[in-house]
């Protein structure tokens, strides 16, 4: 999912957000290990040293990141 998102944004924007994407990926993996994440959950991974560049995860309804059976 994150990989698809990376491909949708300009390369330089993805590059700036590399550490934020890495942290978001780690967070999703951790959530998955613990059964997933119920709504409503908002998480943001900012790029340090920048005013607003970030990656947001927003679970607005249902359950996200449910592990594969």
């Amino acid at each position: 999912m994150l990989e698809k998102l990376k491909l949708k944004i300009p390369k330089n924007e993805a590059k700036i957000r590399k550490t934020a994407f890495d942290k978001a990926k780690k967070y999703i993996e951790q959530a998955s290990k613990n059964g997933g994440l119920n709504a409503t959950a908002f998480n943001s991974f900012n790029v340090k040293g920048t005013p607003r560049e970030r990656v947001d995860i927003e679970v607005r309804t249902g359950i996200a990141f449910v592990p594969d059976k």
């Binding site: 967070y27 951790q30 959530a31 613990n34 059964g35 997933g36 994440l37 119920n38 709504a39 409503t40 959950a41 908002f42 998480n43 943001s44 991974f45 679970v59 359950i63 449910v66």
Partner: peptide, 18 residues
């Protein structure tokens, strides 16, 4: 509190986010 900060298994996230 308006956000869920627990995983589905009931564990608190403890990530600081938020």
């Amino acid at each position: 509190q308006y956000l869920n900060t627990q995983y589905v298994n009931g564990l608190e996230q403890l990530t600081g986010n938020p």
